[in-house]
């Protein structure tokens, strides 16, 4: 691991010094600063050593929460709601469209707790249980921004507007 990265992690851990329950916050921050928005194994091992928290516990926490990723994520992220209202109003079609337009790695089909990234790390697609915007179903989130009543046509437009779009 590079010295600069170690220093960065040290800084993050220090900023949480002594506060209870800081592990989640520390890991979130480390992941956010990673260029591919994930937690490499070495980073986890280093964090465990530095915080004095057993590696098994760190790993246990990371694998419990869906926010954390152990594999690199894409440059852009689209989350599709698969909650009752969105499912009923056809959110599956949006997912199907993305699946037919990009080549994802490790896609095992289905839409339950999906977290897939394209081979070229351009796009990550995930499903969410409900965005709390059900009156606007179907709802998706693109790079942190919420869109409601999305149709396939609209999704196409959104994709075109993404930075570095290849469509």
């Amino acid at each position: 691991m590079k010295a600069a990265l170690k220093k960065e992690i040290d800084g993050i851990i220090k900023s949480y010094d002594g506060t209870h329950g800081s592990l989640l916050g520390i890991l979130e921050e480390i992941q956010k600063r990673n260029p591919h928005n994930y937690l490499p194994e070495k980073t986890l091992a280093y964090t465990a050593k530095k915080t004095g928290i057993p590696p098994a516990k760190v790993y246990g926490v990371v694998t419990f929460y869906s926010f954390f990723s152990l594999i690199p994520q894409g440059k852009h992220c689209i989350s599709i709601c698969r909650g009752t209202a969105c499912h009923t109003k056809g959110s599956r079609k949006l997912l199907d469209y993305l699946r037919s337009s990009f080549e994802f790695e490790g896609d095992t089909g289905g839409d339950a707790k999906l977290f897939i990234t394209t081979k070229d790390r351009y796009l990550t697609v995930r499903t969410v249980a409900c965005f709390g915007q059900c009156a606007l179903a179907p709802v998706i989130e693109v790079d942190g921004k919420i869109y409601g009543s999305v149709t396939v046509e609209e999704l196409k437009k959104i994709l075109k507007k993404l930075k570095g779009s290849r469509q």
Binding site: S22, L24, V61, Y65, S66, A129
Partner: peptide, 23 residues
């Protein structure tokens, strides 16, 4: 801020999560 787990809405799981553990 939660980290994406429905069960953390259950009050004791929420508390575990606040303490930095699996929820």
């Amino acid at each position: 801020l939660g980290s994406g787990a429905y069960v953390c809405g259950e009050e004791t799981a929420l508390i575990e999560s606040l303490e930095g553990n699996r929820g």
